[in-house]
């Protein structure tokens, strides 16, 4: 490789042809960390810069509700649609003070199958208490489940026995992904209201991409069978958002779409 004369005279070289210099320069790309920090996308962020702060930007859906089966999720989604469906077939999630009605609806389902989804708060607490007695593994599973179930009550329009609700709390939206459709396929949402999207694929893997209303970029989440994905989103402008699958799922992949109308 190197001429021996060059090797011998390495110390006499110009600085740009020294090993230490080129090695240092090769780490130059690492400086991109500074830009990430500027945008609040690094562990040590620059405070006060727009975009910094917990959760901004998101990072795809997050897993939750480990262990929920596709059948359970389908049942929750069906209940969500039934509770919020408008005459034109679209679905408009809303907070309702119909605790008793929801409890009946959810409780009825819960009695038929595993009491995980769509149960009343009383039933949830019972299940949690039961699990806590079953050892650390069960407790860990329930800790996860608690987060899931606590919001299922909102999704069903059931805000607990007293029918109270906190307007700052997100409203749950259920999206079920399957070959080759989303359920529901037309959602009507309100702007500046936080919605917690709860999504699951029930056959193979799918993607849920929500296109910005000005057609510049979308927000993508992958959804897997057996894994509940969650993302809280607030739409800040009225408009229509195309929803489409971004993970190849078969021949009809191109046809898999839905729509969100924000008013």
């Amino acid at each position: 490789m190197a001429d021996s004369k060059d090797d011998d005279n390495l110390r006499d070289r110009h600085v740009t042809t020294r090993r230490g210099f080129v090695t240092s320069i090769s780490f130059g790309v690492v400086s991109l960390y500074g830009l990430w920090a500027f945008y609040g996308a690094a562990p040590v962020s620059l405070a006060g810069i727009p975009g910094s702060g917990e959760g901004d930007g998101g990072s795809g859906g997050h897993g939750g509700g480990g262990g929920m089966s596709p059948d359970e999720f389908r049942r929750l989604t069906d209940a969500f649609i039934e509770a919020n469906e408008l005459p034109d077939g679209s679905v408009q999630p809303k907070r309702m003070k119909m605790a008793a009605a929801s409890m009946d609806m959810n409780g009825g389902h819960a009695e038929e199958e595993e009491p995980r989804g769509g149960v009343s708060s009383a039933e949830m607490k019972m299940e949690k208490g039961h699990s806590e007695k079953e050892g650390s593994h069960e407790e860990a599973a329930m800790g996860n489940e608690e987060a899931v179930m606590g919001h299922e009550e909102d999704a069903m329009g059931n805000e607990g026995a007293g029918g109270q609700h906190d307007p700052e709390q997100p409203i749950d939206v259920y999206i079920l992904a399957q070959r080759y459709s989303f359920e529901p396929d037309l959602l009507r949402l309100e702007r500046d209201v936080p919605y917690r999207f709860r999504m699951m694929a029930v056959d193979t893997s799918h993607g849920v991409s929500i296109l910005g209303s000005v057609a510049l970029g979308g927000h993508i989440m992958r959804v897997r069978p057996q894994a509940l994905s969650e993302m809280t989103m607030t739409f800040t402008r009225p408009g229509e958002h195309l929803v489409y699958c971004t993970v190849y799922c078969g021949e009809g992949h191109d046809m898999m779409q839905a729509k969100i109308i924000v008013a």
Partner: peptide, 16 residues
């Protein structure tokens, strides 16, 4: 980053 922040959707993560 600018395109991301310009989306008419704000996200705030989820649960594990």
């Amino acid at each position: 980053f600018e395109v991301m922040s310009g989306l008419s959707v704000e996200t705030s993560g989820g649960h594990l």
